[in-house]
Design a protein around this nucleic acid. Structure first.
Ligand code: MN
Ligand code: MN
Ligand code: ZN
Ligand code: ZN
Lengths: 131, 131
DNA sequence: TAGTAAGTAGTAATGATTCCTATTTATATT
DNA sequence: AATATAAATAGGAATCATTACTACTTACTA
């Protein structure tokens, strides 16, 4: 793998945000450092960075999002604003039951908690204060 | 809501399979009953059926999949063949912790167990038999 | 048995991502 | 340092899933 300044910039962008950006956001950030970087370069390098374990990715509705936090972790997702928040929650399921009842070999889980973030949750107290 | 034969056909297709089809598969099935049905009609009616609770949908990588099983349930997904299998597993997480630590109001969870289905799991016994 | 508004077919447009290719560049070798 | 060369890039075209548009059709109403 040859060195590439573009890849270095892209890596730093993804690894220095907790916002779980999509390719287009990364592209726009990268343009601030490299005026003529191309979107294809961003996509290609995001894939390379993922395949060598530098970053992770997951699908979020119709887009792919990238994550500089490569620790095993799950997310909270706000239905109002779409924000994705890292958590340290563990999800439990009956692994033995899966193997036995479904003859399925589980490797990994994909787990999101959907709801409302602090900015958007329906707080009666908050509402009263605003009146 | 006016009656529509197209919608009736689409509903029956989705509700009589456990395959979690995408719009295109539904479209091809529907064409067997209505030769000139249009893809737009399929998309529009899938949305209507979802919004009135007749079917459900979820994102699976880059596509939307539809589910005639409207009971609360989660899925197993095979990394080899992509099959999505209904389960009765319950996923547990510490709801109170989420509310307290993240000021987040959880409503729902999106939960997939990724692994290998019985057709694709690496069975030592199976391999030996094949030799 | 109209009238009309909801629904449809067919096609164009959109948005995210991938593919293509001529040019540039990192790096290994003289 | 100059040269060779294969990897990487910029810019643009292509693809794929989905949505939007619109003239025509049809279910229901009175
Ligand atoms: Mn994360
Ligand atoms: Mn299901
Ligand atoms: Zn929010
Ligand atoms: Zn499988």
């Amino acid at each position: 793998m040859r060195f590439s300044y573009q890849r270095e910039v892209i890596k730093n962008i993804v690894c220095s945000t907790k916002s779980h950006p999509n390719a287009d956001w990364v592209f726009n950030e990268a343009k601030k450092k490299i005026k003529n970087i191309s979107l294809g370069t961003v996509y290609r390098n995001l894939k390379i960075l993922e395949s060598n374990g530098t970053i992770k990715s997951f699908h979020d509705s119709s887009q792919v999002r990238y994550d500089g936090n490569v620790e095993d972790h799950h997310h909270l997702k706000c239905i109002e604003c779409g924000i994705l928040i890292d958590t340290d929650i563990k999800s439990d399921y009956d692994r033995e039951k899966i193997i036995k009842n479904y003859e399925f070999e589980p490797n990994d889980i994909e787990f999101f908690i959907i709801g409302k973030c602090k900015k958007h949750k329906t707080q009666t107290t908050k509402k009263n204060k605003e009146l």
